[in-house]
Computed example of a mutant assay.
Amino acid sequence: MNIIKAINLVHEYIKRDEDNNVSGITKALDDVSIEVKEGDFVAILGHNGSGKSTFAKHINALLSPTSGTLIVDGKDVLDPTKTLEIRKQAGMVFQNPDNQIIASVVEEDVGFGPENLGVQTEEIWKRVEKSLKTVGMTAYRHHSPNKLSGGQKQRVAIAGVVAMEPKCIILDEPTAMLDPNGRKEVIEAITELNKKKNITVILITHYMEEVINADFVYVMESGKVIMKGVPREIFSQVEELKKHRLDVPQITLLAHELKKSGLDIPDGILTREELINALLKVSQQ
């Protein structure tokens, strides 16, 4: 069952001059059709300005489409009476955790969302406990968020969304401001949520290494979906990705170069283990 279904989605930003006359129109989304099945981990890749963050904001009804259809958990985002229900089921995690963390103590911040939803106090604390455990932050529940690392703050932000018990979490470049260790922490927490809690995850990113475990990948450029498929299909097309100025995981690139040099290695190598096994087979031939 699809939890997200976008059909021919268009979003236009209208520029106006000082006299409020239309001076230009930019299509941030241009005929975008994307489907996400419940329980899947879907990644949306693209450079800044590709439209991926604009699409993310439509899922949470922060933006409304100019035309086309977007259904979230069976509800049309254009129906204003469904906005609150959509936001309950589609939680957003943004790039900068400091913009989402508002309380002075970690556990209070995680409980803020459920409290706003009118959840009973006893149930709030149960959710706080469960959410912090899910992202591996229980030991920090009484800490000040200001004392945490970037990766820890982002995990607290994710816990705050998880505590609201949405069916789907949209993460808009959640690791863009983090160092490699922080990025690893956050991606592990996201993957855990998806695999163990069956929460649908939509990851918006431009880091290719973060999406090798995704169920499905969409690649966007200039507001359009230009490629789609499972990670292995996408990363098998190294030259096509390069044409669109997109990187590939370093292991995939190394395997691609080795194949070009004449080694019998399959396309779409994603992990170090796969490359080692492929090289072992070559050495035994």
Rank of each mutant, 00 (worst) to 15 (best):
A159R: 00
H11Y: 14
M1N: 06
V72Q: 00
T66W: 06
I7M: 07
H143M: 11
G223P: 11
R141C: 09
L246D: 05
I190S: 01
R141V: 07
E257L: 15
S67N: 08
L171Q: 02
D30C: 08
L29A: 09
I7V: 15
I251Y: 08
T252G: 10
V135R: 01
V186I: 03
E192Q: 07
G111W: 10
T200L: 00
A139I: 10
E38R: 13
D172A: 00
I190V: 15
L29I: 11
V201W: 05
K27H: 14
L203K: 00
D179S: 00
Y207A: 10
K133S: 13
D73T: 04
G24T: 11
L178Q: 07
P231F: 04
L203Q: 04
L29Y: 07
G51M: 01
E221Y: 13
G223H: 10
V42F: 06
M92E: 12
A28P: 11
P97L: 05
I102C: 04
K75V: 14
A6P: 01
G51L: 07
G229V: 00
V77E: 10
T134D: 10
A6E: 00
N194F: 03
I102M: 07
Q100F: 02
T26S: 13
I204Q: 02
I7C: 14
E38A: 14
I187L: 12
V282T: 01
